[in-house]
Design a protein around this nucleic acid. Structure first.
Length: 544
RNA sequence: GCGCUUGUAGCUCAGUUGGAUAGAGCGCAGCCCUGCGGAGGCUGAGGCCGUGGGUUCGAGCCCCGCCAAGCGCGCCA
């Protein structure tokens, strides 16, 4: 509409014909500036050579009146402010109720195939809190993208082969042997955590000493498999408690079993991206502008994880034909981003189609003491312990509320004592309160059927509607920027506006028609708040 | 040394492509319950947006330098 008006103005000769920058509609922070605003006249002023304010006035003249808009005014130094009409706002309540739990959906994705790969932790031990952050981030992002109209696949890449896995198997076998009094040491580069002792006890009790009687390579293979399954199962349990689920668990080993890894290596070889140096095979990334080359096949003939990563991404783009791939990695993998993009390019894929989101570290504090997160030291805080302490919803909220690229301190003491006063409960309480009102009305035999929303005219009512209408825009912002944390702030805002409305406005009164209208508003609020919570993977409790 | 990320209120953090008076939660100081859940509402104090330059009508946001913190720079993942 704004673009139309600018064109009309230019056509009429009142405004010089110049290239108009992308229309920029903003939401002013000061309510006196209306619901929407544009600074287009300020941007045009220089090229056009007219004062911004007069440009604004000219454009305003060419904006047709419409039922949505109460006013369109030019404001100094050169803004155009749009104010929505109360009547149109009130009418949106019916639309929200009609949309139901689809409210907030948009279609910027147009059904394109997006893969979000996240967590993908080596199955060598329990998840710690840092993994929880990646899990929540990936999970929320996936939900948001799905709401934005993308066809989303959530995927966990299971590194079930390679050096770390071999180290795990040797460690586990050692713990198993110790159960029967044998002298066996966990390798120095192995996994020393106490959980392996527990698993070993369990296996010893269940399977007896039969692994002691077979040749070591066979024992390692068999008991290793059992150990991996146990770890994976624990990981799944933890993720499940956090409300994080996956569509696909992709096995690294399968890349070798299917021969894909070899095939992709052959292709890179053929196209001159590989070279033999010092007995190993290298991917020549320096030729593509990288700082250094990288080994794909070691001197002993075994492939590095980089080799399987290459095959894995070949699979993502060529075999499964994802339009876009989003990987969520921890900050400790940040150095691999550019080489991964380089190799994607070498395979003939536009590297823009791969986005790697780096999720910064979580440091844990217990009061003054900072706990380093390391999987190999014995004493770590697991994700499970965190969930036990603060609950899944609080975990999700706190992780989801922080942007991925800022490091965060998670103070366990604080998280514990914070319980009833933290934003998680504030938001959820808003939902419970709404449910309570609806229940109260129901008990009195009042339904909102036939309610006339045009009776909604007060500031608290209209402000609540305004805030509800922001959900689709918030989804769009979060989806475009791949920043799910916007949802958390929106949730808090929405709850605030509702609580404020609730405090000033009684819903169920003697005025039958007004009661119906307000019940509609509250019911719409419930729809929007529940949807927001669900997009964040949180519960929307009816009572608490 | 090089690369990536971060530096905003006492604390934890937002700030959408550069826009109007920089925000929220917690904490702090006041105030508000004849009523649908007070796990609530309202008001206030608190800021050289790390620092020094630059770009322009306009910079927390863009560019360069510097300082500080985290992570990375393996034939580990």
């Amino acid at each position: 509409m704004l673009g139309q008006a600018v064109k009309s103005a230019q056509a009429s000769g009142k405004l010089l014909s110049v290239t108009v920058p992308e229309n920029t509609i903003e939401r002013p922070q000061n309510p006196e500036h209306g619901d929407y605003a544009t600074s287009l006249p300020l941007k045009l002023a220089r090229v056009v050579g007219q004062p911004p304010l007069s440009i604004a006035r000219e454009i305003v003249n060419f904006i047709p009146s419409s039922p949505e808009l109460a006013s369109v005014v030019a404001a100094p130094p050169g803004f155009i402010n749009f104010k929505l009409s109360d009547k149109w706002l009130a009418g949106q309540v019916d639309d929200i109720l009609t949309a139901g739990n689809k409210f907030g959906n948009i279609d910027i994705g147009k059904g394109s195939k997006v893969q979000v790969e996240f967590v993908s932790v080596n199955p060598t031990g329990p998840l710690h809190v840092g993994h929880g952050r990646g899990a929540v981030l990936g999970s929320c992002l996936s939900s948001v993208l799905a709401a934005a109209g993308y066809n989303v696949t959530r995927e966990y890449y299971l590194n079930d082969t390679g050096n770390q896995i071999e180290a795990f198997k040797r460690s586990f076998f050692a713990r198993y042997q110790q159960q029967f009094g044998r002298e066996a040491e966990v390798p120095a580069d192995g996994y020393h955590g106490a959980y392996l002792v527990d698993y070993a006890k369990e296996v010893a009790a269940r399977e007896g000493k039969r692994f002691l009687e077979m040749p070591e390579p066979e024992a390692l293979r068999e008991i290793g498999k059992i150990g991996l399954d146990m770890v994976v199962s624990e990981i799944k349990t933890d993720l499940d408690r956090l409300g994080v689920s996956f569509d696909v668990w992709f096995s690294e080993q399968s890349l070798y079993d299917s021969g894909l890894a070899r095939k992709v290596m052959a292709q890179l070889q053929k196209e001159g991206h590989l070279a033999l140096k010092e007995g190993a095979t290298w991917f020549i990334s320096t030729a593509l502008g990288e700082d250094k080359d990288n080994v794909v096949v070691r001197g002993d003939g075994s492939p590095t994880y980089f080799a399987s990563d290459i095959a894995y991404h070949y699979n993502k783009f060529f075999e499964r034909k994802f339009d876009r791939v989003i990987n969520i990695w921890g900050a400790d993998h940040q150095g691999h981003v550019s080489r991964m993009k380089a190799v994607i390019g070498a395979l003939g894929i536009d590297s823009e189609r791969l986005t790697v989101l780096i999720c910064q570290m979580v440091s844990l504090k217990r009061g003054e003491e900072t706990v380093r997160v390391s999987k190999r030291s014995g004493d770590i805080i697991t994700l499970r312990e965190l969930i036990d302490e603060v609950g899944a919803d609080a975990c999700r909220y706190f992780f989801a509320a922080r942007s991925a690229d800022s490091q965060m301190d998670f103070d366990l003491e604080l998280a514990k004592e914070q319980s009833p006063e933290n934003p998680v409960y504030y938001v959820q309480y808003g939902h419970a309160r709404i449910c309570s009102v609806l229940k109260h009305a129901k008990e009195k035999g009042i339904s909102y059927e036939g309610g006339d929303v045009s009776l909604l005219v007060t500031a608290p009512e209209l402000n609540l509607i305004r805030k509800m209408l922001l959900l689709p825009e918030t989804v769009e912002t979060a989806a475009k920027a791949l920043e799910p944390h916007h949802m958390a702030y929106y949730a808090l805002d929405l709850a605030t506006v509702f609580h404020s409305f609730y405090d000033t406005t009684r819903v169920v009164t003697d005025d039958a028609s007004l009661t119906k209208a307000r019940l509609k508003l509250v019911a719409a609020g419930q729809v929007v708040l529940a949807r927001t919570l669900h997009l964040m993977g949180m519960n929307a409790p009816e009572s608490m």
